[in-house]
């Protein structure tokens, strides 16, 4: 297994108290596989990615427990120096906002080249040549000229390609992409997602895709993990989950999106609001919004039930949900 996250916990100490952002996340990514972590804002998906990558701001953040096993080594026990060597070379990250993720006062060529001078000890000239190669690889037109341009001189889609190029530079085994296409228009999003999928399969990398978009997940993921209030509430192969979700939150999400292929009637709306992470409801965090909620849901935190060999659900009544009896 390439990446195994076990019972990861992250909290933030703020003036108003402790915010429990990640509360026991367990997931795995195999080589060559795409796992999508799906969640709404505040679900803890980005914090999970940052903790895996080792770029969490500590303090105010704090790892409360758990393990992040990368090829069997627990990254959380490594020294910063050792983690830095892994970052970029063995696992790389693509961020949502390319304008703020790239250095505005360095040319893109210098930023791409830095990967090779720092990690591979190449000369500046060789690094520049590799940068041009990479920009070609992500299909930036006239790469040999544009290598001297600054990030603001590129369009959003082109900048995101540079981010991908930078992530791919050292051919890492794992890529973590945090909402890589959210800021882009649909036609550009399609270009970038296609490119990412193509390169991923060519290099045989594992991809951990953080997103809120059920459409993007359906397009590219092999497996999906749905997060709510800092926990993974359901995890399954992508085809299974869209056919028959085993958690009422997943079901609610799927039913609340408008469809492109028909007009539909009134949308199903999950009632209420996402939980406050300083005061997560007792028992199942989703119970105040759940149509299936009963007494046990208010008292007992549901464990991850095994739905099948490849699926889990953190719902006491996953059977009912799977049978489509999530009626209220």
């Amino acid at each position: 297994m390439l990446l195994e996250v076990r019972d990861l916990r992250v909290e933030f100490r703020t003036r108003d108290g402790v915010v429990h952002a990640v509360n026991g996340v367990t997931c795995e990514v195999d080589a060559g596989e795409t796992l999508a972590v799906l969640g709404e804002s505040g679900s803890g998906k980005s914090v999970t990615a940052q903790a895996i990558m080792g770029i969490l701001d500590i303090p105010p953040g704090r790892i409360g427990g758990g393990q992040v096993l990368f090829r069997g080594t627990d990254l959380l026990t490594l020294k910063e120096e050792e983690r830095r060597r892994i970052r970029g070379a063995e696992m790389a990250m693509i961020f949502q906002d390319s304008l703020s993720a790239l250095n505005p006062v360095m040319t893109v060529g210098a930023q791409l080249g830095e990967m090779f001078t720092v990690h591979r000890g190449m000369s500046r000239k060789d690094a520049r040549a590799r940068a041009v190669e990479l920009m070609d690889r992500v299909r930036i037109p006239a790469a040999s000229q544009r290598v001297r341009d600054y990030p603001h001189q590129f369009s959003g889609g082109m900048r995101q390609r540079i981010m991908i190029a930078m992530a791919l530079a050292l051919e890492p085994a794992l890529i973590i992409a945090d909402e890589p296409t959210t800021a882009l228009d649909v036609t550009v999003q399609a270009q970038v997602m296609d490119l990412l999928a193509e390169l991923r399969s060519e290099y045989g990398m594992g991809l951990l895709l953080i997103t809120h978009d059920l459409g993007v997940v359906a397009d590219v993921a092999d497996r999906i993990a749905v997060m709510y209030a800092g926990r993974i509430v359901e995890s399954a192969p992508v085809h299974d989950i869209y056919k028959a979700p085993a958690h009422p939150y997943t079901r609610g999400l799927l039913d609340s999106i408008p469809r492109l292929d028909h007009k539909g009637r009134e949308l199903y709306a999950i009632r209420g609001l996402p939980p406050n992470l300083q005061a997560i409801p007792p028992g199942c965090a989703f119970h105040p919004r759940c149509p299936l909620a009963r007494d046990v849901c208010r008292k007992d935190v549901p464990p991850l039930y095994e739905v099948s060999g490849t699926r889990t659900s953190a719902c006491h009544f996953w059977r009912e949900c799977l049978d489509g009896r999530a009626d209220s």
Binding site: A190, M193, D213, V216, H239
Partner: peptide, 10 residues
């Protein structure tokens, strides 16, 4: 180009 929430549509 719109991603459709249906993996079978791929």
């Amino acid at each position: 180009a719109v991603p459709v929430p249906d993996p079978d549509a791929r």
